[in-house]
Design a protein around this nucleic acid. Sequence first.
RNA 1: GGCCCUAUCGUCUAACGGUUAGGACGUGAGCUUCUCAAGCUCAAAAUCGGGGUUCGAUUCCCCGUAGGGUCACCA
Length: 438
Amino acid sequence: MKIITRFPPSPTGYFHIGSARTALFNYLFAAHEGGEMKLRFEDTDTTRNKKEFEEDILAGLAWLGIPYTQASPLRQSERTDTYRAHLKALIESGAAFEAEPSAADPDTPIIRFKNPKKSVSFTDLVRGEVTFETADLGDFVIAKNLDEPLYNLAVVIDDHHEEVTHVLRGEDHISNTPRQILLLEALGFSRPQYAHIPLILAPDRSKLSKRHGAVSVNEYRNEGFMPEALVNYLALLGWNPGTEQEIFSIEELVRAFRMEQVQKGGAIFDADKLRWFNHKHIMLLSDDEYARRLLHFAGSPPPDKAIPLLKERAHTLREAATLLESGEFYFLDNEISYEPSLLISGAKIDAETARRHLTRVGEMLDDIPEDSFDAERVKDAVFTYATEEGRGAVLWPLRVALSGKERSPDPFTIAGMIGKKRTLERVRNAGALLASDL
RNA sequence: GGCCCUAUCGUCUAACGGUUAGGACGUGAGCUUCUCAAGCUCAAAAUCGGGGUUCGAUUCCCCGUAGGGUCACCA
């Protein structure tokens, strides 16, 4: 039997991180079994739906790289005839009835389900046997009228028509399950397998919501997180591979995903760990691909030579853009300027000592042929001397001379990046500053 | 409050009756190239409580406790 799962968001809000994880689990489970996940929009609440939200969800799924097939029709609002037919049948068989208007809306009658008041149990794939007494539920409302079905009814009918075999959804739906089972039994449908996955929690263990910060997929996208990282992190929130592997591509997740390894308890969303995943996935990118993605955040492309440093230093694409704009690679410019006192301030040495070291270093660097002037050669040339004379005393002035900054990459790397000519220029220039100004 | 679910380091989790309770994030220390970052090494850090069952419980059962979900003419 082909496994069919579904992802049925209601377009009443932006694509939420919890929603994204539910979609991901549905996809991973179905794909692992060679099946498919069907997308449909649950838009029976016409007052709260927005086209904009539909588009956001679609864009989010595409960005994350979570594949799906579309249910047909895609929207519940396009299925009114089907619902009406089932509703009529339910009323005719006595399983449902038109009830008196309630206090909420005194003018209109509504349709309720005649509760058989029995015990319903189902086997949840992550929790095992769950039992409810449906008498507690009363004669619950299933439609406003023949043309306006409510959630529980619509879900049951849709899942049946789309031949859904497995319903994987958030734990918040567990209490809807007995209602839906009652309904599908009355309708004569077969019962799908259920699995209720734990919720994503805020740091205070409450349900993750807007007041805790970023919750929409788009916000993470805009903060410079990559889809690979978000997918990887979300998959590991509430699921584990049973091995110690942490970094996964989505293909690897499909291969490894098993329902038995899904956690029962809720999991707190940890933004720090997401950043770590993001950095790991950044390091996996080719320089070209990295530069391409960075373009969405930075006004102009980064200097080629800066890319490896950027990948290493910034955990998100936005951080990389900020670094770029804040002058992190100032040393790549043709001219640099800085306060001369900076040349000695970090190394507890006097100007004369600094000048002497720079002069000597300049001589050593001058001996390296221009065409093999790279970080490694520079280090080889200078390091023994620096160790003998005191690394701080030699390297600090050298680094400031090359970078013009209090904090920067190491001097060897910078020298390699700017080349022999500019390196020597800057070393001499720093020496001159020390001789005259200090 | 009723009903349902859950419970291992601060956090994400492994250990499906027998382990010095493992890994990862974060934190601290050290190392690496002077600063910053990255990397490496080390360290601190957990089985909610009480009863059972068992030769033996993180693991199975019961009772507490705590947390969460849900009780709409929302989904």
